[in-house]
Computed example of a mutant assay.
Amino acid sequence: MRTAYLFLSPALVFFGLFFYMPIADIVNTSLHTGPQADRFSGLDNYTDAFSDPAARNSFRVTLLFAAGTTAGAVVLGLGLALLVNRPLRGRTAFRLALLVPYLTSVAVVGLLWRNILDPQLGVLNRMLRDLGLPTQQWLNTDPLLTIILITLWQIAGYTMILFLAGLQGIPEVYYEAAWIDGASKWQQFWRITLPLLAPTTLFVSVMAVISGLQAFAQAYIITGGGPAGATDLYVFHVFEVAFRARDFGYSSALSVLLLFVIVAFTLVQLRAGRRREVEY
């Protein structure tokens, strides 16, 4: 037992210093108020969070963002995986091209699309003007949908790779037996592919929800949280409270609440996903 703890000690020290201690410090800060978070206020910051319209709006926006990116990641990733899993010419290059956006940093992607969608100098509006068509206010018409689509564009390659690995792990003998029994392609997909991809779908959905709830750069770089709070993602709101309003106690309370929400969503997804696997 001592030998086991000896080998585990570097990891335990690492997690203790860089994971558990910061969490404990944030929880402690959330119980204080003032410019330096030096006055103990108990649970006042938490009660303020539930009555704050800006916090409620940012949470609602984040839930919509997470739901959109999660559903899109599953559907788009599975669709692309089914496409590139077929014996197509040049599929390796196609897979690589889809993966490149995911390998690019979120900041670079945000700056790229902010410039592309710029109403005056953006490439899209310039193309529309060249074609004699009216230009669009891309980031004002439906900004939340816009950043959801940008996020899906970036993560599509990653989810495709995950589903592709799941597809290639399904034994071909199942499809051969289904074909002999006269099952159509759709029946094979519904009765074989989807059930056996349940663990992959669960992993993709859990990671997508966690990533969606923690999203920040899309609002910070592309839209600035606007217009009128339409893209005020929760973590961006925490950033605004902490570094612009300089209210570290309240921002810490918001962060702790987000941690509980992420844990709750993850547990619910894991329980529902495992129950579905048992049914299959």
Rank of each mutant, 00 (worst) to 15 (best):
P119T: 05
T3R: 03
L196E: 03
A253H: 04
F7T: 04
L12A: 15
P227K: 05
A107Q: 10
V27K: 10
F50A: 00
V109I: 11
V256F: 09
I222R: 08
K185Y: 05
T193F: 00
Q168I: 09
L17F: 15
P227Y: 09
I26Q: 07
T69H: 00
S211A: 06
T223C: 05
I26T: 13
S251F: 03
F248K: 07
G169E: 09
I26D: 05
G132L: 12
Y5Q: 02
L99S: 00
I116R: 03
L96P: 06
Q214E: 15
V109P: 02
L76P: 03
R60H: 04
T104V: 15
G110A: 02
N57P: 01
V75H: 08
A165M: 14
T29W: 06
R191S: 12
R89D: 02
L80E: 01
I116Y: 04
D38P: 08
S30F: 09
A230C: 03
Q154P: 05
T33G: 13
V235A: 05
L88T: 11
I170C: 14
D52I: 01
L96Q: 12
T62N: 04
F163P: 03
V173Q: 10
F248P: 03
Y158W: 05
D232M: 09
V123A: 14
G226E: 11
N115H: 00
W113H: 00
R95C: 07
I161Q: 01
